[in-house]
Design a protein around this nucleic acid. Structure first.
Lengths: 246, 246
DNA sequence: TGCTTGCGTAACACCACGTAACAGAACCGC
DNA sequence: GCGGTTCTGTTACGTGGTGTTACGCAAGCA
């Protein structure tokens, strides 16, 4: 499972950036949206795993948007609202929201619900979800989600450990974006692809990257896929779809 | 503890079969019923763990049925209705429904509630759960409750020990849910399928899982049914009814 | 050129898990 | 009760994955 990508839909700029930042600090990829149009734009631009949808969107209505989205897509939705009255709550469920949370909310509660919904979605729609992930191609490599194995451009099968798989997914979910070691570590933990704590002390990530390189870089001494950004961290530096070097 | 058996009570044949199928796909045993008479019939024929009861049942009234059932039996009930008005909701709770869900509902939400109610019921009354199971099917295997024997997909009969049987039941009752060793141990003791204490010290569960694997995994070295969650415990990871790998 | 800082990685240590082997308990037919 | 069989927890060892440490090298800078 790659890093979950969330849309944060709110018409209030301040709330939006606050939420986005908070989610990012907790290992998610959070993309701000301000209206229904931008939701559709984001969803056609890339994968979206969960939508945090404000009920009061200026003159738009979150519940209606939710209902419309649900008729088209299977993406999980959490409705966010200042109105916690029961009829509102029920209205949320009826249109197919996966959960409903009232503002102001406890940050931990929000995180817990986001994770719960993601997990449920991951489990139940394994079909739709897995299909997307089950095979993935990058730079001539093929990643088989099922058994944590990748196939090299020349057809050799390489099996990755869990942590290595997790790292690969983190990179693939963030093409061209330099990631610090800390970001990588928390992402690995959030997505549950490994069980270690983000101990900022050691050089675990360095070693991990090294191991991944030895497994899937043609020439590990001269890495082309996983590049080092000196003083920053690491980047995956090919176009994930086509494999073109950038 | 076995696979939960649910009654799906709805007068609309289409809804009934849709719901039944969905629940079966998610690891439950779902039995369709169309009226109060068939409820009683099913309940006298075998164990019933939960009733999903439609509020509008033609000329019968789900709420009244719920109230009647509650005076006789302890079986948990979830009321299902297209009417989400608050007073209806309350009417449901007052007659002792364990939960209330409005149509059309989110499938995941339904599953979550069903599991929650089952878990609550399981905790509070272990008695009702002690009854025996006759036959059970999972992933092509058939489990014969009587003699603690299972029959493999290719017809070979394998006999399980008591402890192994208990473990199998624990797994079957918790599809897709990772169980810690401690949870497994206490579950084994609660269900009386074994008499040992949950000594957290040893590695009894590991060995037990290993033994079950050698008996009913096609390839015990690469377990597909009983997967290890490193640092957590074990999960049964196939769709219990159909045997589809997840 | 020499110093400093950051990175790569080999070697090591540790931990979780799988499992073979063993020993005691329970069971069973006599 | 008795001898054998089966069941089951414990122990011990092997294996693989992962973080840590230490050392050497490369990059950047004065």
């Amino acid at each position: 499972m790659a890093i979950p990508r969330l849309l944060v839909v709110d018409d209030d700029a301040e709330t939006r950036s606050m939420l986005t930042q908070f989610l990012r600090q907790n290992g998610f990829i959070a993309l701000p949206c301000q209206d229904e149009a931008s939701i559709h734009q984001q969803m056609s631009a890339g994968r979206v795993d969960l939508i945090l949808l404000d009920v009061m969107l200026g003159d738009e209505n979150g519940v209606e948007i939710c209902a419309r989205l649900r008729t088209e897509q299977e993406v999980p939705i959490i409705l966010v609202s200042a109105l916690s009255a029961d009829h509102q709550r029920m209205a949320g469920y009826e249109v197919g929201a996966d959960d409903y949370i009232a503002k102001p909310f406890n940050p931990d509660l929000l995180l817990a619900r986001v994770r719960a919904v993601l997990q449920r979605a991951h489990r139940s729609s394994s079909l739709a979800y897995r299909r997307r992930i089950s095979t993935l191609r990058f730079a001539g490599w093929t990643y088989l989600g099922k058994k944590d194995e990748v196939i090299s451009p020349d057809g050799v099968q390489v099996s990755l450990s869990r942590r290595e798989t997790g790292l690969l997914k983190v990179f693939l979910a963030n093409p061209h974006i330099p990631l610090t070691r800390e970001e990588i570590a928390t992402a690995l933990d959030v997505t549950g692809e490994g069980e270690a704590q983000p101990e900022a002390s050691g050089r675990a990530i360095d070693v991990l990257v090294g191991r991944l390189r030895t497994k899937i870089e043609a020439n590990p001494k001269e890495p082309r896929l996983f590049r080092t950004e000196r003083g920053v961290g690491y980047v995956i530096s090919v176009d994930v779809e086509t494999g073109e070097p950038e």
